[in-house]
Design a protein around this nucleic acid. Structure first.
Lengths: 190, 190
DNA sequence: TCGTGCTATGCAACTCGTTGCATAGCAAGT
DNA sequence: ACTTGCTATGCAACGAGTTGCATAGCACGA
């Protein structure tokens, strides 16, 4: 399971509370991994018991205190060993594909709206990713000399993951257009 | 949850036993939904209790008997109502993306082999899908007059789902090449 | 002041999904 | 004769993930 490892990566990029992690999982990390706050709190507790992360209470003004977590040595080691462990290429699960094949036994035209909704959702995500790329990954016109190599790697790797999200959304959009064209052939004409 | 519905679709396409379903989930259905035989047996039992499917014992020669399931009226209705229910665009989960971002805090070059493995796995799947398309969806040179419309829809919808799988694999392959190029920049040079 | 909404954390109950194991008959190779 | 492997079904235990609910402080507007 990778939720623990996703949390480790996120905390290495920047320490934070369970709540903040949940926010991040709705944004940038959520592009390739989702989690609810309950999952995160539960896993954080286990990780703290296992010595993977450490927490300190941070008082805040105008807000409840928070527990800020950061990665401990054991956590870093756990991440490293996971990184070196091969994993199987993911098994895909697309409800929508099940629906499309199922439509043959119902009314294919009735799916058109649903597919259009998905198409728009993916269009929105694509726009969102592209805006993020524009904001975070356009060169500020000639960085002088060599910046820190470590930061460079972090940025570059975040960027290539984002490009993956962009490629995924573009693929989905053009496939959904293909699906719509196919469904249209079984509409009024039949 | 869509496992029940995926099973309904598969049984509508062709009745079969739990074992046969498990096979299909390793093949064509597995392109967009995975399930182990234990899950399938458990869910089939529940579906039979709920009256969604019916079974009959089929004796076989040279093999253990099997229970062949087929879809009952209630199951057809359940599928139909699910098809009309909107679903949320899927939440993605890519272990590999987590690893790639995590590599910034370890040795990026160590991931190269892993990414190459995935690249090859996706290449294999693509070849497999293309062979299936060639086999099942190339026109046998002019079908005379109009074939059955219902069968037409089933085939066309299966085909568009397969095209989705093909597009997905192509996208992954080109993205993984991008990832490899990016990782290479943090290799020997650094 | 009352409701709405955000930050912040958590429990309990449930369903979903995976892993390991067990059984049993038959086929085919060594 | 022995092992390996395929069809065929299933249990038990566990871990992952979801949903509903609870608490609590503070901000902000009607």
């Amino acid at each position: 399971m990778a939720l623990e490892h996703a949390i480790l990566v996120s905390l290495l990029e920047k320490p934070g509370s369970g709540y903040e992690l949940a926010r991040r999982f709705e944004r940038s990390i959520g592009y390739f991994w989702t989690a609810t706050h309950q999952q995160i709190y539960r896993v954080l507790k286990r990780m703290e018991n296992d010595g993977w992360v450490e927490s300190r209470d941070v008082p805040q003004q105008g807000r409840p205190d928070k527990k800020e977590y950061s990665v401990a040595d054991l956590g870093r080691a756990a991440l490293s060993s996971w990184l070196h462990d091969p994993i199987e290429p993911e098994s895909v699960r697309h409800d929508l594909a099940v629906k499309i094949r199922g439509a043959a036994f119902d009314d294919p035209a009735a799916l058109i709206r649903e597919v259009e909704r998905h198409r728009h959702a993916h269009g929105d995500r694509l726009a969102h990713y592209l805006a993020g790329e524009e904001r975070d990954f356009t060169e500020p016109e000639a960085g002088p000399a060599a910046p820190e190599a470590a930061l460079d790697a972090e940025r570059e790797l975040q960027h290539v993951v984002l490009r993956g999200g962009i490629a995924y959304e573009r693929m989905m959009i053009s496939w959904l257009d293909d699906v719509l064209a196919t469904l249209a052939r079984f509409g009024p004409g039949h």
